[in-house]
Design a binder for these strands. Structure first.
Length: 924
RNA sequence: GGGCUGGUAGAUCAGGGGAAGAUCGCUACCUUGGCAUGGUAGAGGCCUCGGGUUCAAUUCCCGACCAGUCCA
């Protein structure tokens, strides 16, 4: 990055000098001509701890208010915060910076900003430094990025670098920061395909703000190279600032850690619950924490080795041992982490993240389980929701937290129980396996630990502990988690569907989509713009292309009296491509030809019904289950449709019935369905991000569809009022992922057909049992019970029968050497019977039994008593040989075997062969 | 979106192509004044469901459903 980028008039007019840090070599601007270092860690240690840099102290609410007012007074529009879950984006789950609110469409210039310039305090969640939270004294999973943004265009500039730095300097001065102590360090910024010059603002060793001047975008031919990537200048350039609210509060208080500055009351309460004396007034104790924070500021403590180094240095400076220091620090650090993590959960859950095993929900569960484990370690036994409530009460400036508390409590209750179950199950598993290895005198292999974690969610530390309770040792390598990851890295090829004619299509003008204007019209005329193979592009069309979970229309297109079937329709960058089933010999379609289209009405109407029904069901589900319900996907078919929603437990039958009732009531109220093309930002302001439940559409103008109380950006075709949807019949629910429920239903004629189908199942079942449908449940229960009793009865009878046979047959035994053979055909006996008889006969020690029957082919059973076994008899081999004779196979153990075949005529032969083979066996 | 594990008695789980098992719990009886305990006997299983392979499937294969879990 060029040095010129940082030569600002503001600096030169205000007595700043550009210097190079004597330690790290980076350049920085300062008013202090004597200064040698840049002010950033590790070149400068924290000096603000115990020595606040502001005139007065602020808490979160005060600081936020001060900042926003400061920029509002200077011409910025104050904006409400966005959710911490990035609903308006499909590339990230969580909001990681204030600028994320405006990506991608505002930053790209496609969509005008909601206000310009603007100021906002955006809660952000970053889980990348999870291990450092609590330990470093400064890391948080959740923080608020206070910001002011200005979106400039080539010919329309609001302000740029000078004004931005000036505002920052003015803000700091107004807070009473010593101007000589502030440094602006040059640090080019790059991320997410953009880049630009940037200055970090440092006071007292702490980075409290970052001022990014985003004016570059990634480009292969770009001439500017940053961190190995090529960039070029953009036509629109953006002031992207980030002021850390929590860091400002920390700097104002000068407390040993950021946690003691941001949520001191909750930290204290949890310390009490854990029985830790957290007395910051105690100078010795405060000194330990301060030393720790100062040194931790200089290193990355998520690395185990660094943490040990930190401990060593702090222990040395206060004259104690690492062990002693660790025993003091670890519990305190854990409490800090719990406090932080629970605040993170408060934001996530209140903004509608449902803990789950996929997507953002997984991140919530990750944090949640981490927290539960730490609470257990610290002996904190109150429900997790109690801590979340503390945060909610602590943050009255977020009234939405209060409203959601009931649902949050319910979610947390479920999650806590679930995790307890998982751990319980895991403990049993590992101990069982531990016993196994103990007997073998071995350690538990690493593979087992990996499986415990990967497949069963048991952290290796817990496995180790559980195993040691049984007295088995476990080797736990430091790189455990990377070993787990290795097991996952078996390459997965992804098939990316590439539209074959994208290049050619991109040169065509966008197709006029007339199906929005006249949703009921099915016949139309248009002009052929282009055709390649069987892909036809028209000037305008009534064919709906696949999208938004709605399949493409089918129908016909006639050109020059030749009728072509349309089998698929796709939209490629605004151009609708009709895919024909075949190009016939007689068709000579040319550019400029008139084309006559006819859309298959039945298919279209079925899709429209199901699409409108989907919005109705979504609305009903939210009314029944709660506001946390969020569409996670949907698909429409001709005969049914399905909707996936986020919900933290199974939908009960009663709830489903309720949803069905409400949905059908909406239908009967025959409400108007309206669609309106709206400015994107305006729509977001008016309706919130619920708009994007069905996906995030591109562009500055979006189609806002209102069905009942459901308002979404939707490009599908719909019924013009809810009455046209017809009946909505719920078919089933399915849990496709933890935290995601799938509801399947049919609407319109499809619903009627579904009901008829169900009815026919019912009447067929009722007919079979010769009862009326309403008597089915009781009758079936009776039948089932009777069937079970008959089965038992049958079993008993067979045993009795076997007994009778045994008495007879034992007398008919023939002596062969030292053993007695019973060889007989038992007519009509099934295999179970044969086995029973044989088994019982063989309780006579010297008997060998060979039985056959002719039920359903040939069945053969053989058994041998213990003495006959000693004499050499092997029922397994006998039966195998005999079964071969009758064209089958068989086998078993020497004492008991079964087999069979198909050749009924050879039963006697088989018995004869068995007898001969037995003679051979015992003569050896 | 990708991957992994499991579904057997009321509970927790063994087993495994050739007569369904253990432990706890349950019922009855014995031991006791009563309970704890200790005996003895017994009840309780469409081995999740649907296909396939086989002479034979609870067991192997495919699919569905249910449950658990890791990762992007």
């Amino acid at each position: 990055m060029l040095e010129d980028e940082y030569q600002l008039d503001f600096f030169s007019e205000n007595g700043f000098v550009r210097k190079q840090c004597s330690k790290c070599g980076s350049h920085f601007w300062t008013r202090d001509t004597e200064r040698a270092t840049c002010g950033d860690a590790p070149c400068d240690p924290y000096s603000f701890i115990g020595n606040p840099v502001f005139k007065k102290t602020f808490d979160l609410a005060e600081m936020r208010e001060y900042f926003l007012n400061f920029f509002e007074e200077r011409g910025h529009t104050k904006l409400e915060r966005y959710p911490v879950i990035a609903r308006w984006r499909d590339d990230i789950y969580l909001t990681i910076a204030s600028i994320a609110d405006f990506q991608p469409f505002v930053t790209s210039g496609q969509v005008p900003p909601p206000a310009n310039p603007l100021t906002i305090s955006q809660p952000c969640i970053r889980l990348s430094d999870l291990d450092a939270v609590g330990r470093s004294g400064r890391h948080l999973t959740t923080f608020e990025m206070m910001a002011h943004h200005a979106f400039n265009k080539k010919d329309e500039e609001l302000y740029w670098k000078d004004r931005t730095v000036e505002l920052c300097d003015e803000l700091l001065n107004s807070l009473g920061v010593d101007p000589m102590a502030v440094t602006y360090k040059e640090e080019p910024w790059a991320g997410g395909g953009n880049a630009g010059p940037c200055v970090e603002v440092l006071v007292g060793g702490l980075e409290i703000a970052t001022l990014v001047f985003m004016d570059l975008k990634q480009s292969k031919d770009g001439e500017i190279v940053i961190k190995g990537e090529n960039y070029q200048k953009m036509d629109n350039y953006i002031v992207d600032t980030g002021y850390g609210l929590e860091r400002f509060v920390w700097a104002s208080k000068g407390s040993p850690t950021i946690y003691d500055a941001v949520f001191p009351n909750i930290v204290n309460e949890l310390m009490n619950l854990a029985g830790i004396e957290h007395e910051l007034d105690n100078s010795e104790y405060a000194n330990i924490l301060s030393q720790n924070a100062r040194l931790a500021g200089l290193m990355d403590v998520s690395e185990k080795a660094n943490l040990f180094e930190l401990r060593k240095q702090v222990a040395f400076s206060i004259g104690t041992t690492v062990e002693k220091l660790s025993s003091i620090m670890e519990p305190v650090e854990t409490i800090y982490a719990i406090t932080d993590h629970t605040r993170c959960l408060t934001f996530m859950l209140a903004d509608g993240v449902i803990p789950s095993n996929v997507k953002a929900g997984y991140l919530a569960r990750l944090v949640l389980r981490r927290t539960l484990r730490m609470m257990k370690d610290m002996g904190i036994t109150i429900p997790l929701s109690d801590i979340v409530k503390m945060h909610a009460h602590n943050l009255p400036e977020y009234p939405e937290f209060q409203e959601k508390l009931d649902v949050i409590e319910d979610i947390l209750y479920h999650e806590e129980r679930k995790f307890a179950d998982t751990l319980e199950r895991g403990k049993r598993m590992i101990q069982k396996s531990a016993k196994h290895y103990k007997e073998a005198g071995e350690k538990i292999p690493l593979d087992t630990l990996i499986e415990m974690y990967d497949s069963h969610g048991i952290p290796p530390e817990i496995s180790k502990q559980a195993a040691s309770e049984v007295g088995v040792d476990v080797d736990l390598p430091d790189n455990f988690y990377s070993l787990v990851a290795e097991g996952h890295s078996k390459a997965e090829e992804k098939e990316v569907k590439v539209f074959p004619y994208a290049e050619r299509v991109s040169k065509l003008p966008k197709t006029k989509k007339l199906f929005y204007d006249e949703p009921t019209r099915m016949n139309f005329e248009s002009v052929v713009l282009d055709i390649f193979d069987n892909h036809l592009v028209l000037d305008s069309t009534f064919f709906y292309p696949e999208g938004g979970g709605q399949p493409a229309d089918h129908g016909t297109i006639t050109v020059e009296d030749v009728v072509h079937k349309v089998i698929d329709v796709q939209a490629v960058g605004g151009v609708v491509v009709h895919i024909l089933d075949e190009i016939k010999d007689e068709s000579h379609i040319r550019k400029g030809d008139m084309a006559f289209g006819k859309v298959n009405e039945e298919r279209r109407m079925a899709h429209a019904c199901h699409h409108t029904a989907t919005h109705i069901v979504n609305d009903a589900a939210r009314k029944v289950l709660g506001d946390h319900v969020w569409q996670a996907g949907a698909q429409k078919f001709v005969d049914k449709a399905r909707l996936d929603i986020s919900h933290y437990k199974r939908i009960s039958q009663e709830e489903l019935n309720q949803i069905e009732l409400i949905a059908n009531r909406t239908v009967m109220e025959n409400q108007r369905v309206t669609a309106e093309w709206m400015d994107r930002i305006e729509a977001e302001k008016k309706y919130g991000f619920g708009l994007y439940q069905g996906g995030v559409p591109p562009g500055s103008i979006i189609r806002v569809l209102k069905v009942a109380d459901d308002i979404e950006a939707c490009a599908g075709t719909h019924c013009v009022n809810t009455g046209l949807v017809g009946p909505i019949k719920m078919l089933k629910t399915e849990r496709i992922q933890d935290g995601v429920e799938r509801i399947e239903y049919a609407a319109g004629l499809a619903a009627v057909r579904a009901m008829q189908q169900m009815e026919s199942y019912l009447s067929q079942s009722a007919d079979a049992l010769r009862v009326r449908p309403e008597h089915l449940p009781s009758t079936i229960e009776r039948f089932f019970n009777e069937w079970k009793e008959f089965k038992k009865e049958n079993q008993r009878l067979k045993e009795d029968l076997a007994h009778v046979h045994v008495m007879q047959m034992a007398n008919e035994a023939v002596n062969i050497g030292d053993v007695r053979l019973v060889a007989a055909v038992v007519p009509n006996a099934d295999i179970d019977e044969l086995v029973k008889i044989a088994g019982e006969l063989a309780t006579n020690k010297d008997i060998v039994v060979l039985l056959a029957s002719d039920s359903a082919g040939v069945k053969i059973a053989g058994a041998a008593g213990v003495d006959s076994l000693k004499a050499g008899a092997d029922a397994g081999k006998l039966v195998r040989k005999m079964s071969e004779i009758v064209g089958g196979g068989g086998g078993g153990k020497p004492g008991m075997a079964r087999g069979g075949g198909v050749d009924v005529d050879k039963i006697d032969e088989a018995l004869e062969v068995g007898r001969n083979l037995l003679e051979e066996q015992i003569s050896n």
